[in-house]
Amino acid sequence: MTIKNTLLAAAAGAMTLMASTAMADALRVGVEGAYAPFSMKEADGSLTGFDIDMALALCAKLERECVLVEQEWDGMIPALMAQKYDAIVASMSITEDRKKKVSFSAKYYDTPSRFIAKEGASFDLTLEGTKGVKIGVLRGTTLQCYVEKHFPDADIKLYNTQEDVFADLTAGRLDLQLNNTLGALDGFLNTPQGEGFAFYGDDLDDVACLGEGVGIAVRKDDPLAGELSAAIQAIRADGTYKTINDKYFPVDIYGN
């Protein structure tokens, strides 16, 4: 009996040890995979995009192995808290609401968002003017916050992936959709699917909803946030950031 217990304890101890060393090595990063050009899938199913390259570069800087974990957008923060991964590199804006649940690194890029509509279409972007107008946004984004706050009487439709939003915009089920400008250009407007569509109106402006740039989310008060901020500064300084940036965008998307 005693021997058996000792053996069991030893086995359990060994397993914990193995688990903890493995944990210390690999950094598990939550990514999305349906948000071109930040995060998308190649034909063979492998992940690519600005966010993915950024995650890999930051892991390299921290000298930790990167394990990319795919997660649909609306479960991104819940899965972080459920320990499915340790950091989110998925174009997540730093907002007050999210800071209640998670901690953020410093921003790693900052680009504006705009409406997209059919070319030549005309909308009155006011509370009154958007009554019943069909606006599509990705569920659980800063844009959902924005559109629900500013146009509560619009017919707001929430989607699981950005690709579904584009599909419904082309199918004519939506009048307007809201998106990050760079994501919209590469993922839609500059593709054959986006022919006949254009940006509508100005860049959105509402820090409370839209946040202060895009950062890396980690569990609340995880010191990883500070390490990642330092790593972002380091890859800015050593030129890695610029290499990745230029691979996808004609301009520096870091912002001011």
């Binding site: 819940p78 609401d97 569920r139 916050c145 439709k157 699981n160």
Partner: peptide, 23 residues
């Protein structure tokens, strides 16, 4: 709820999405 309708699960997902909740 997967095609944008706000049925029971749709509302549940809306709440989770809007307030960044898990369950």
């Amino acid at each position: 709820s997967t095609v944008t309708l706000q049925d029971l699960l749709g509302v549940g997902r809306w709440l989770n999405g809007r307030y960044y909740l898990a369950y």
